[in-house]
Design a protein around this nucleic acid. Structure first.
Lengths: 211, 211
DNA sequence: CCTGGTACCTACTCGCGAGTAAGACTACTC
DNA sequence: GAGTAGTCTTACTCGCGAGTAGGTACCAGG
């Protein structure tokens, strides 16, 4: 709603946060290429040279956005999971934390999933890295809990599929926001833990009774 | 390998196919924004005005590419599935057809999945449409086969998750091409039909014995 | 050999957006 | 109140790429 005039003087750290917030917003709406530095600076309420002085080039800025949002998300998930519980409970906690985060951070999710995965730029590294961490996490969970001997490749590919299912369901959820996070998470949990085979027969998974 | 000179005169229909092939190739490698009409015309072996005369603007061209590749893929899947078999067999056939197609049409898949899903342009319609058809297909399969009463929303979201898992696994596969299509398809089949719960216990799904 | 129509080209225009030069305004310090 | 360090701006340059104007080669049929 600011129209014109000089921006109020603010310490660098504060400005940088504002700019990052604006950048995530714009990138999430328009994608990397279509987002212009002019628009980001406008949304942030400052002029373009400030942008360059503080955050560097457009690619650097984007990479920084991804790193920040990825970290926030991974932390949200990690704090939701307790590592010495049963595998299914761990998975359940992770899923709930994931959908909880997405629900409260639509823009972050858009940047992370839709935008970053596309371009083969230098920032793809950041994204691939985060996704890799997520996949490894799930793969480890699976490997550790399975009794049947499973190859590394097998666990990894299953984890990739699961992560993809989560991403896709999160996207679907953006178009059906009336559903609560817990319900969506529970559905995915049932799919990947019970499988269609059981669901078709009416067998569902439910969390262990409280306490 | 053509360096210069006038291109050989060819009937319009043939040229259009050549151009489309070139466009799919370039779009798949660079994405919509980074791909330039200059490069596409160069790869196609003709000059830019021809491109515009035949296929219209860049956006129209891209939309046309998506439509063509989407149709090819949906047909490949449809011909692989026989609609009055058991649900699990139908799903299995569909998955095999899908991974078979992706394996033999990397470029098409890149265009369809990575590139098209990103941009919010007018072509997003084409993509959303195809994805929607795939989701409906799976949702119908699920609804029809389940005994427990399931809401439309529930079936649709599960289908979305499954489709997403397939997409994600296909992407993972691009980075691990040494695995045969059937193995990858079987893994996903096991995940979504049996679920982790069963897999952890060593129960696997396998196709009904041949004949 | 002319007349048209279709394939095809070179050589532009023109806007958009990344990045910058050069300076102006504010605030703190001694 | 003069120096100086950090914040912030206006007003550019400049390349890239979408889209086009205005042709040239080639092949009919008359």
């Amino acid at each position: 709603m600011r129209t014109e005039g000089r921006a109020k003087r603010l310490p660098r750290a504060v400005r940088e946060r504002q700019i990052m917030d604006a950048a995530v917003d714009v990138f999430s709406r328009l994608g990397f290429h279509s987002a212009s530095m002019d628009e980001i600076s406008e949304v942030a309420g400052i002029s373009k040279p400030m942008l360059y002085a503080y955050l560097g080039s457009k690619e650097e800025l984007f990479a920084t956005c991804i790193r920040r949002e990825a970290t926030r998300m991974m932390e949200a998930i990690a704090t939701g999971v307790e590592p010495d519980q049963e595998p299914d409970v761990q998975l359940w906690s992770g899923l709930r934390a994931f959908f909880g985060f997405v629900g409260e951070n639509r823009a972050s999710w858009q940047v992370l999933h839709r935008q970053a995965s596309t371009q083969g730029g230098p920032f793809a590294v950041e994204l691939t890295d985060m996704r890799g961490r997520a996949v490894s996490l799930v793969a480890a969970l699976l490997t550790q809990s399975t009794k049947a001997p499973a190859t590394k490749l097998e666990a990894e590919s299953l984890a990739a599929a699961l992560v993809g299912a989560g991403e896709s369901l999160a996207d679907w959820w953006l178009d059906h926001p009336e559903e609560p996070a817990g319900v969506v998470a529970a559905r995915l949990m049932n799919l990947v833990w019970m499988g269609f085979g059981d669901l078709v027969d009416g067998n569902v998974w439910h969390p262990p009774s409280r306490r």
